[in-house]
Amino acid sequence: MEKSNSTTDFILLGLFRHTRLHLFFFALVQAVAIASLLGNSLMALLIRQDPQLHMPMYFLLSQLSLMDLMLVSTTVPKMADGFLSGKTSISPAGCGMQIFVSLTLGGGESFLLAAMAYDRCVAVCHPLRYPTLMSRQLCLQMTMGSWFLGAADGLMQAAATLSFTYCGAHDIDHFFCEAPMLLRLACSDTSVFENVMYICCILMLLIPLSLILTSYSLILGAVLHMHSTEACKKAFATCSSHLAVVGLFYGPAIFIYMRPKSYRSADHDKVVSAFYTIFTPMLNPVIYSLRNNEVKEALKRWLGKQVTLKHQQT
């Protein structure tokens, strides 16, 4: 088999074909992506502008919104451009950047969700010691640690993936560059790297997930010992939102990165990838805003200020 030059562009085959049904799905995905960008931008704006949301819990939530914004911006524009203009090629550097950014955000979000679970655990189990146990300095350290660990994983996997020699037409049956899909085109043996990638997935997904489950086990024990019905409802409302986001994130991530190679299907991978890179970022702000009274009150205050400013200008 002829080996290709390492500088040859890759071809993204995309998620949709040019049929009426796929055109409808394409429009739906674009609408979801726009809603995701608007929702996460609004969430980050509210947390930044409203002093009552200047707490560790909402600072971590603003970082989650930032990660979701970047994830949608990394995958959707290239997919839309390829579908509308037919320019489906992507350079090795562009492909490596997509792998790096998507893995940085995925790994970072994994640890960020663990930090958010710890925050909720401290708030429910040790409310009087919350300012000490969840200090601003610790919050910043956990946030920076999430970004750093995600970036380290993304850089390692992007560099290793692009170091292989690729064969044939360089056609990637996906709508963005994702390491497991790219490895299918490699001419050389990738088994060692796949084992390393599998270990990285255990470290980046299962360890934070274990911390999250431990935190919520402690929360459940504390809630069951509460004598106030109102306190129980508030704890469950706050924690259920976070658990919903955890489920939406970890389910698809484990499906994509931790299945044996023999069980992989390109069509299934594309659908699941579309879910966690486009639909989940839209659902996150919806889940937190609908089930969080403080966010809803902050939104009302912000809208009230906008109406007042508009009246003053007229």
Score class of each variant (00 low, 15 high):
A235L: 04
L12T: 02
Y166V: 02
P180R: 07
F236N: 03
L61W: 05
R17S: 15
G106Q: 06
G221L: 12
Q30L: 15
V307I: 14
L38H: 06
L15N: 03
T143D: 05
L213P: 05
C125L: 00
L37Y: 00
D267S: 14
D171A: 14
W302E: 12
F25I: 00
T165Q: 08
Q141C: 15
T314Q: 15
R184L: 10
A169C: 02
L138T: 13
A151R: 07
F148Q: 12
R20M: 14
M226A: 01
A298Y: 05
L46Y: 07
I256M: 03
M282I: 04
F100G: 08
L105I: 14
A169K: 11
S6A: 12
T74P: 05
R48G: 04
L15F: 07
S110D: 01
T229P: 00
T280A: 10
L283A: 10
C121N: 05
K234N: 00
Y250Q: 06
I254R: 11
V246D: 05
L138V: 15
A186I: 02
Q63M: 08
M144Y: 12
A158P: 04
P131E: 04
P285C: 01
F16C: 05
M55Y: 08
L46T: 10
E2C: 11
M181P: 01
Q98V: 09
M1P: 12
A253M: 13
C95H: 06
